[in-house]
Design a protein around this nucleic acid. Sequence first.
DNA 1: GACCAAATCGCCCTCTGCTGGCGTGCC
DNA 2: AGGCACGCCAGCAGAGGGCGATTTGGTC
Length: 631
Amino acid sequence: MAETEISVPSGQFTKIKAPELVPEVLLEEEEDRVCRGREPPGPGDGQALCPYRPLQAKGPECEQEPLLTTQESEKHILTLQTVHFSEDVSWLSPQPQDGVQVTVQPEGGGPQPLLWLGEGAPPCVTISLQEEVYSLQEMQVMELHVLESGLAGASEESKFVVSLAESSGLLKLEKGQDEDQLRAEGRFEPQAGEQLFLVEATPGDEGGDEIVLTISNLHVEGQEDTPASGQGHADKADSPKKTKKAKEVKRTFRCDSCMFTSSRISSFNRHMKTHSAEKPHMCHLCLKAFRTVTLLRNHVNTHTGTRPYKCGDCDMAFVTSGELVRHRRYKHTHEKPFKCSLCKYASVEASKLKRHIRSHTGERPFQCLLCSYASKDTYKLKRHMRTHSGEKPYECHVCHARFTQSGTLKIHIVQKHSENVPKYQCPHCATVIARKSDLRVHLRNLHTYKATELKCRCCSAAFHERYALIQHQKTHKNEKRFKCEHCSYACKQERHMTVHIRTHTGEKPFTCLSCSKCFRQKQLLNAHFKKYHDASFIPAVYGCPKCGKGFSRWSNMQRHSAKCGAGPGKPAASGKVRRTKRKLAVRKEAVQEDEVAAKKVSPVRLEQCPGEVVPVPYGGVAPEGVTCEEP
DNA sequence: GACCAAATCGCCCTCTGCTGGCGTGCC
DNA sequence: AGGCACGCCAGCAGAGGGCGATTTGGTC
């Protein structure tokens, strides 16, 4: 029989439940009930194609550890998977003349067959599975809700036989072949390593396109209670196989309202009361009604605060024993029986493992109605809704700032209103950062290895870490890296060197428009113009504190006052203040000195070494603006 | 039917990490 | 003055811990 292979990239799956681990005892309790199908199909399941197979773990760890192995204290449990495909599933349902095999492409491996639809089988487009935990080996019956695509087969009851080859995880459905038929054809006996299941297709409760596939295990030791329809009826198996073991057949009572079955009439009767609305035991405090006295008592204890189950290791006490057991596991024994097969996570509660599994599968059942966000649990969705409502329920008691999350408030209080605020020292440099997350950013930006070299803008040095580059470039900060080829002069900036070079070339590009005098620097020209051609210019004058002699430069006045015995004196607070001090008294004298100096100082002497003060030509008073040093 | 253990649902919390706006200092 | 880098900060989501309350089913 030819098969049409359809490879489904694993990325298209949004739901693949991983196998779970539960204590073996949990399985033993399943003996006389077929499965626990309380949960209706989850939201979104209606759009799902749900191949049923032993989950093949993706990681290497799981390859080494077969999922169906049984260990001493725990047992791997197969979890039925709900796998979503895109809306367009036309590719899934070619005319199934020869059957369709749906495969997935796991990471790093070849295609894995998921569900093989034999000839004539309805082209199952979407299947939703109840989210329950099953042991494949011990499974007796389960239901798959199938949304049919365009075919009318759902309206009729039909049967298939599913064979599960453990080696491949392949489920094979062939329409119109029930157990008897297969047996008559000599095909009933499963091959080695293969397990057979009877699949009955019946119209679903919701009608329409839904059909229900009831899969019964035909190969479970000692299990003869394949459920059948009929409330409270005990059904006897009539297949040849079951006839063969007729003496082991038990009466099975099946609930019409749910999937409950039991071999005990008492259990069945009591179960039927769970479907009754009768709750005769009423709480006198809140008028809530309960089915049993025990339930009422536990409830009343919540009102009265009665907690009969006290923890022996701490002061906690609980209403029920189950709460105490759970508390002890969380706080004292740290027993975590629910272990994830895909990672090392283990939890005290099954619901926590179920929630954790979503971090592997990416399943997000809780959809925000206002945006595209979907959450993995209800609390995150509720928290997310604050982003739409603007609600900020957490208020700082000090500054009354409000926050959307308690954790944000806590950090705010610690950072803003607490002493001894913790700081985070960068392990690679002296930086201290207030928040750990910001330290992470710091490390990422400054201390991560860069494949491409970061080159220094000042020299040829190159680094792979940004911090090292920055530290290196700081060494250039005060470096006089521009060195004159003709003398020992060096400077930090190239423009300074350009000016200096003119002292060697004699170039004087700045010419006074009034007297045609030439200068090497523009500011020298400006100073010249102000002194000799600008009548409004008032030069700065620095007076000796002892003798009152005026100087046009602060440094010259200091040198004089040291000899004069007046001490170093104090510089004026600003140029404006400086100009106001004694300016009228000494102005005339200073102008006379400058005029003389301008006449006496030769241009050659202006080309003395940088910073050198020109010797005082007359009476120890130096002319202003006659050094090579740039202001 | 009572009792009990286990399972389940639901809620809230903390811790953690990422992101982007903002202020500030440096170049 | 403007660009840039970086720490500070609040917003937000992921993941998991813990427990209250209830339901379910087995046993006596």
